[in-house]
Amino acid sequence: MSEYTASATFNNDQGSLSGLPLDITSIHFSNQILLQIRLNGEMDSTYEVTKRGLNALDQGISRPIAGFNSVPSEEQNDDDEFSYNADVVRDNLADFQVVTKLGDTTDHKMPVICTQMGELYQSVIIPMLRTSGKSNELTCDGSSLIITISSKIFRQPKGEDQDPDNELDFAKLVFVLKTIKEMYSI
């Protein structure tokens, strides 16, 4: 197993989290990657992210992190109702299955966040480690991820209708993903 750590502090772009420390530890095993994301040292929820589906067939085709490669055109779907545009049907978020091991199962935000982390490992970090020659010690291909995270990072303060933090979720996610990526570039 090999181990990576990184620390960062949330800044004013992340609203109410400003000034709180973010500590990330990841440990690579041959079958799993264990990722622990702490806000202020705390963490409470655990998710398992596994890769599913046939997207190995799509390897080599450049694909966006989110959204579609192309916009569906009106002319195509005239006569044949079974014809489809492969790019439109393709949903990259569906490549991952997220299981809530411990935490709020009614929270639909966290599985999406975990999927984004799975996607980061799949499309950026594992290829990065491979090209830097560390792949022989890291037999794991990043297809299975266990994430222990503090759910407070993305929690909304209660009783506030016009909550400014609502729009900051994306900024928080980008900050966390950026810290994970920086952890490997040391």
Binding site: M1, E3, T5, D23, T25, I27, L34, Q36, R38, N40, G41, E42, M43, T148
Partner: peptide
């Protein structure tokens, strides 16, 4: 054995978990 331990800097805090990874 190899142990990787992550522990809070503030030892008086009861909220920061200890995480132990054992090989």
């Amino acid at each position: 054995l190899e142990i990787i331990a992550t522990i809070g800097k503030d030892l008086s805090s009861k909220k920061i978990p200890i995480s132990l990874t054992i090989c």
